[in-house]
Design a protein around this nucleic acid. Sequence first.
DNA 1: ACGCATGTATCATATTATAATACACGACAT
DNA 2: ATGTCGTGTATTATAATATGATACATGCGT
Lengths: 266, 266
Amino acid sequence: MKTKQDTLYVGSLAKGLRLLRAFDEAHTELSLTELAQRSDLDKSATQRLANTLHIEGMLEKDPDTRRFRPSHAWLQMAYAYYWSDPLVGQAMPKLIDLSQDLGETVNLTELSGDHIVYVSRLPCKRTYFAATVIGRRLPALSTSAGRAMLATFPEPDRNAAVESWPIKRFTPSTTTDRDKIRGSIARAARDGFAISTGQMILNEIGVATPIIGHDGRAYAAVQCSVSAHTWTRETIIRDILPKLQDTANAISPSFQGHRGSARPDH
Amino acid sequence: MKTKQDTLYVGSLAKGLRLLRAFDEAHTELSLTELAQRSDLDKSATQRLANTLHIEGMLEKDPDTRRFRPSHAWLQMAYAYYWSDPLVGQAMPKLIDLSQDLGETVNLTELSGDHIVYVSRLPCKRTYFAATVIGRRLPALSTSAGRAMLATFPEPDRNAAVESWPIKRFTPSTTTDRDKIRGSIARAARDGFAISTGQMILNEIGVATPIIGHDGRAYAAVQCSVSAHTWTRETIIRDILPKLQDTANAISPSFQGHRGSARPDH
DNA sequence: ACGCATGTATCATATTATAATACACGACAT
DNA sequence: ATGTCGTGTATTATAATATGATACATGCGT
């Protein structure tokens, strides 16, 4: 759009990234023309860029169907990420203990702009695979983890987020009323944890506790997803919450600072 | 091997990818000059490309230290990968059951050229975090999973691999003798599973069973890593192996075909 | 056999990325 | 203070590079 502005901006690289972003849960393998459509590039550009990505091992190409797919290199990216994120190394052993102790699925999530990202996931009970895979992004306001984190922010920031951050309706019971969300976050600020019901999946309850950073704010949270068939708000608070909080608290002190999410603001 | 390759090769994109590849377990955050050195690009190119990657959200930049790091987008790549890999969706529920049943760490690995890649990982016991993170690549010949897969290949292919594929010494007890490896694979071909001891980490035993594809070959394996302090070859074969095999067999029939790993051969 | 959609290859053109340069800032040493 | 070094940043003129229109090839359906 405004590629013109900067001589420090390499358009070809950016276009190549657009090809990569064309793949998601609904588009797992793409033909050349689909790729072109989804990344809004003309056929020639797509051809050249996709070919380059293929040669460089970022895209696999089925010799028969001629369709492209993410390669194993995409997993290596996650590998590199894990090492680069100081929180992951600190948290993993404790999260493993927690999941063994609880016998329920435990997740580590981080704030990423106005979304949360599932950074690590320890599935225990059989659960919807789809629900939370590593790397999934969800609107922070619609998740227990996001609310637990936001609850640690000063009130002005909190309110600004509640007003402007995106919300997406996943189930009929997803909360879209921002006032209710504000209330939920206020309660989380008071209690130190957040619980949400059926926001993403029906009959799914999420409970999250914040991992507080050096500045008193949380940019990460420990989250636990359980079935509403076997758990209630009360039993969760009684049996899960204490251990969840212990884990989050055990991670917090050993974790100082958070990854600057600054974007260029030219 | 310069641009002369083709007019279908976009050098700028390839260079950008080299920047991404500069990050690994030993290089978790890089300054501009480090980035330039590691990707073998001059300062100007690095500046432009890194800036582009930053603007596009692929690299975070610490405003103070000016150093770059992988962003959350790197996790999203793994997310997209998971959806694109037909094996993952099939295997996950069964792997979860298995890990719950065994109470030991279970991994799903795939063959990627002459390496194996950890595609999914379900940690149970506290274990070295470093050992196996998602996305890690290891020389196939040095791993139980790699040998279990190779064992399903016709003998000529097997031998060619044993001769030419790379080996890396990780511990004093890593097997570097290719004849011994050939023997290990031959045994795996006979038994239908592979066991290796102390290849990656001392006092660590790996056992793997192949996930057989449509052509009788395995491009994936279910693997289990346990401590030599609590397990022996015999107890593993008695208590772990049957369940491991059941799981691999349960995945195999529902999984037809494998992702073509064809590279361009111009 | 035909049209249509898709993947592939080619090539002249100028848009685009390039790499040399100069500037700014902080660290450290004398 | 004053110097040098190592950085990160910004600005150019230059031509090399990516571009996209085009033509060719291939398969699929009717």
